Structure formats: C-alpha cells, structure tokens
Computed example of a mutant assay.
Amino acid sequence: MDVKSRLQENLIQELLSYSVFPDPDVLEETIKRYETDSNMWLYGYESEGILVGIIGFRINDEQEMTIQHLAVEPHSRGAGFGRGIILEIIEEMHPVRIVAETDEETVQFYRSIGFVIRSLGEKYPGVERFLCTYEIEPEDE
C-alpha cells in the first residue's frame, strides 16, 4: 500500500530510519525528498494488519526501478517479508529491471532472491558498496 502520505507518522519514520545512515538529519532529508519528489514512491507491507516493512523507489519511463530504501522491522526479519515486498512491488509496478545499491551486510539478501551482484568498490572510506540487479522475465502469454 502507498504510505507516502503518511510520512509524518512515527512508525513510517522508524521503518525508514532502518535503511538510512543512522543520523536524524539524514532521515529528515530523506523524508523531505519523498514529500517533494513526485518520482519517488514509498510503499508499506503489512502482515496480519501490522506494518512490518517499507520500500522506497523510483521507476523511470523504461520501467527500470531503483530501490532507494528497503526495510523490515527488526523482529520480523528473516521471515521472508523483504522478499515478499519485492515480489509485491514487481506485481504492482511491472518493472523490467530492478537495481539497488547496498552494503556488505545486505548483499546476501539480494543474492538469495536472484539479484546479480557487482562490487562498486570502496565508495566511502572502508565501506564496500554493491550494485544488485534483477531482470524481470516477461510472462508467457
């Protein structure tokens, strides 16, 4: 479900905070970008009526989706919600490709659901970043 209009809610901000640099200023900048950029989308994922995760992304005219933020609340991690969020967003938005940039801590998650991983090297001192790409197979008619 689209939760962009709920950006001022504590739960939405808490979930978003899990996927940004742990700094209140960075979180505030991120919220402002979602509020002002009509090309950024923010969707929430519910389980049994409880919001357990979010995905923030852009999608261009060629239907290439770039994941900006993906987070599952800590107590629900490892239960398949992250994968579910991506599967739902594929169903909803019909991208032809999904790309995400991530760190070493999260790269295995993307690898486990079929993303192709490429190292971008050390983008920040001591921090290796990775580009994760997933090509959507067209459905047979």
Rank of each mutant, 00 (worst) to 15 (best):
A100W: 03
I59T: 07
G84S: 14
V99Y: 04
V72A: 08
I90L: 07
A71T: 08
L7E: 05
E92Y: 02
S119D: 09
Y45A: 09
F21T: 11
T66P: 04
K123C: 10
R97W: 00
V127F: 13
V116I: 10
L7W: 03
W41E: 13
V96F: 00
E62G: 00
E62C: 01
E104S: 14
S19A: 15
I59G: 04
E28R: 13
I86E: 07
L27H: 04
R129Q: 12
D140H: 09
I31C: 10
S19L: 02
V96R: 13
E73F: 06
R77K: 10
V107T: 14
A100Y: 03
S17Y: 08
R118F: 01
E122T: 12
F130E: 03
R111H: 08
I113K: 09
D37V: 04
F57L: 13
G53C: 12
V116N: 12
I50F: 00
M65W: 01
I67E: 01
Y110E: 06
S76F: 08
E91H: 10
I50T: 11
E137R: 08
F115L: 05
K4P: 02
M1S: 11
Y18N: 07
I85G: 01
V52L: 00
V52C: 07
A100T: 09
L120P: 05
D2A: 05
R83T: 12
I113S: 01
Y34E: 04
L16D: 06
V107I: 10
H69C: 08
I67Y: 03
T30D: 11
G56S: 13
L131C: 07
G84M: 08
R6H: 09
F21K: 13
L15A: 09
E128F: 11
T133R: 11
E135A: 10
H75A: 09
V116L: 10
H75I: 12
P95Q: 08
D103S: 15
Q63A: 10
I55P: 03
E62A: 12
L70T: 02
T36V: 12
F115S: 04
D23Q: 11
P138T: 05
D61F: 00
M40Y: 12
C132I: 02
H69M: 05
I86Y: 04
